[in-house]
Structures are given as C-alpha cells and as structure tokens.
Design a protein around this nucleic acid. Structure first.
Lengths: 218, 218
DNA sequence: GTCTATAAGGAGATAGAC
DNA sequence: GTCTATCTCCTTATAGAC
C-alpha cells in the first residue's frame, strides 16, 4: 500500500522515452494488425490464434495477455475496422465540397468515389464479407458496422437529397437506400461473388443509370 | 466384363421396391439435409462432420462413403441449394402471369414477392450469408449461385424492362440491377445485419420509392 | 453399405521461467 | 510483459467388424 514502492509514482521524470514494459500499445496494435490480416483472409472460425500471433510477430501468450480470448480479439478488431472504415467514407460526408454543384454532378461523383473505394481497397470488400458472413454467430458485431459505416452514409445522403428541391423526392431516405443498394449490390455481385466473368457490367453504366433515375430528365 | 454378372442388367424385374443397399439416394438426401442445417447455421469452418452426421442420423463413416471429404460435401450442398433457390424464384420468371399488367403493378408485385420470400424463408437469408461469407475461400461456389439465382433473375427482369416502351429506359440491364440491388441491400441491412433496430425502414417505402423511380410519373 | 473405434493432428487457453 | 512448453479437447479422416 505504501506509495514509495509503487513504480507508478515516477511519472514526472524523464523516463517516458521507453513505454515498452507496460503492455505497450504498440504490441496491441501489432496484434490487431495480425488479427486483421488473418480474420479478413480466413474468417473467424478458420483463423487460429497461432497464426494471429505469428502474423503479429509475438507469442500466443502475449496475444492472450492483451485480449481475453479469441472472440474478444475479434470484437476489438471489428470495432477498429468499423471506425477506420467510417473515417475513410465519412471524410466525404463532412466535407462540404462533396455536396457542392449540380445534384447530377454531386451524385455521379459520390457514386464513383464509393465504387472506386470498393474496387481499390481490397480490405473494404473483405470487411463486408466478414461482417455478413459472421453476423449470424456474432449479431452484436454488425452494430459497429451499421452505426459507424452504413448509417452515417445513409443519413448523410438522406440529408443531402432532402435539401435538393429540384429532385422532388417523396422519400429521401428510401431514395438514399436505393442509391447505396445499387452500388453495394454491384460490388457484391462483381467483386465479392466474382460475377465479373459470368455477368459482366461496367460500373459507368450503373452510375449513369442510377443518377438518371434519381435526377429527373423531363 | 460379362454383362451377365452386372447387377445393372435386371432393370425390368419387379425388384425396385427396395433400393436400400446401393448407397441409397435416401441416405444421400438425409446427409445433404443434415449438412444444410449445420452449414447454414454455422458456416463452413465451424461445422464439424460429427454434427453433420448426427443431424443426418447416420454415422460419420457413412457420410464419408457418400462424399469424399468435407469440402466436396459443402460443394454438393451449395449446388443443390442454388438449384432449389433457383426453382423458388424462377417460377415467377417463367410464369407469364408474373409480367401481365401495367409496369407499375408488375414491378410492385415482383418487389413484394422478393421481399416476402427473403422475409419468410430464413434459409434464403442464411444461404446468401453463407455464399458471401465463404466465397473468399471457395470462389467456385459462388458460380452456382450466380448462374442459377442471380443471373436468371437479372436477365428475366432485363428482358421485361426492355419490352416496356413506356418506361423509356436507356439501359434495361443496369436498371434491373438497380431494382434488385435496392431490394437485396434492404434485406442485407435489415435482416442479415440486424439493422431493423438501429435504422428501421418499412419495406413498403422501399417498394414504392423504387417503383416510382423506374416508372416515370411525369 | 453401415457401423464402432481409433489414428493423427490442430485448436484454444494456461503455467511458469525470465 | 513476454516467452516456451504444455494441457486438454475436438477436428478430419480411416480401418476393420458385421
């Protein structure tokens, strides 16, 4: 109980150079990185803690000292990915320049950005695959995705659509879901399910058609 | 080589009552049934062959006598489910009455049927979850789904939309994908990811908005 | 053709040295 | 705090009786 023995009581000294020996956040990040690599590639059940440890460059016991068990490591990873993905897509939503211009231009630009991100960032597709695939056994884990990714995007788009009087949309939120659904379904068929060979489709045709449906032409 | 010894050469006799002792198709069906139950509930990696055997009411050795290994059993199951699902949804497409009436009525009816099936048949959602979740490690297995389920629906809808001159659609196939994408994304968010609580939405609003976007109102 | 019993290996999780 | 070594259970797949 005597504070003189406690190593916690030397915080003001210039010893902060090496935060090594206090369950370093660096190790935690490395473990989450290894977990990301393995879980995204193999899914939950097919990923072993040995491989996570190897991918992280630490021993298995270290993994268990940072995370109580496999499922809580998985939960932490999903949480982190949801927030990271959120940042990636929400930059667009909070940036005013995203929504400046004619509705036709704005929606075209937005659709292209979303498809580009899905195409160029393989982690994005793998994350969606993981969330959908494991949401049956981990129902709670879809919440971070909904709250941090899907809902902000739908809400932001809904707000934008509701401010465009020229579009005369009766139900902006349902329209926003049509917008996102068209894009996500395209990614799902072409990228996730490898439909590019069996039923090819150019992304520009999807974007053009989608924008034409929402922005009245007559 | 002598055909007189071949058991195949007694097809005309009245012995067809008991096809028991020839790797009975009934057992195969029972195994596939058990496999369906387990794989749909747990995914591929988390399903054990012991539980498949138990669910099928046979021993594990019997499972291995009908299917070479776990992955080929899984492949057979996916193939069967894709064909079964295909029948379920393609009845609508081959039935002429599905496409009779005003485009607005036809599309509304079709959208409601698809959402109803996704809502009432839990196997439908679990199958989609399984296909998406495992398509990373079993890329071939998404082909039966694409060929037997997704492509026929898109193609049938594309053909219908292209015959509706009143709709003046520039790109019927891209429009068909918008139609299906909106519905599947709705099912994905609300049913698969449990978004019903966090971002509720009535299916009727989706259907109404979707039909209004495709069928011109002015 | 179907069963019981078992082989061979990998999984999650922990004990104890340092 | 991190490691090596280990415990225990469960996995896929097969061998051999009937």
């Amino acid at each position: 109980m005597s504070p003189s023995n406690s190593p916690n009581l030397t915080p003001n000294l210039a010893l902060e150079r090496k935060p090594e020996r206090k369950k370093s956040a660096a190790k935690s990040a490395a473990i989450l990185d290894g977990a990301m690599q393995e879980f995204l590639a193999n899914g939950y059940a097919a990923t072993s803690m040995d491989r996570v440890a190897a991918a992280a460059g630490v021993s298995k016991a270290t993994v268990y000292s940072h995370f109580h068990d496999k499922s809580s490591l998985f939960a932490s990873l999903v949480q982190e990915l949801a927030e990271e993905s959120f940042k990636a897509t929400s930059i667009d939503l909070r940036d005013a320049s995203t929504f400046t211009g004619e509705p036709r231009e704005v929606l075209t630009r937005l659709a292209r950005e979303i498809l580009d991100e899905a195409t160029c960032d393989p982690k994005f597709c793998e994350f969606i695959r993981l969330i959908i695939g494991e949401s049956g056994r981990f129902p709670e884990l879809s919440k971070p995705y909904i709250q941090n990714v899907a809902k902000p995007v739908i809400d932001g788009l809904t707000h934008y659509l509701s401010t465009c009087e020229t579009l005369h949309l009766n139900d902006p939120e349902a329209s926003a879901r049509t917008f996102m659904g068209t894009l996500i379904y395209f990614v799902m068929l072409q990228r996730l399910l490898g439909g590019a060979e069996l039923m090819p489709m150019e992304s520009d045709r999807i974007v053009t058609t989608l924008v034409n449906l929402i922005v009245p032409t007559c």
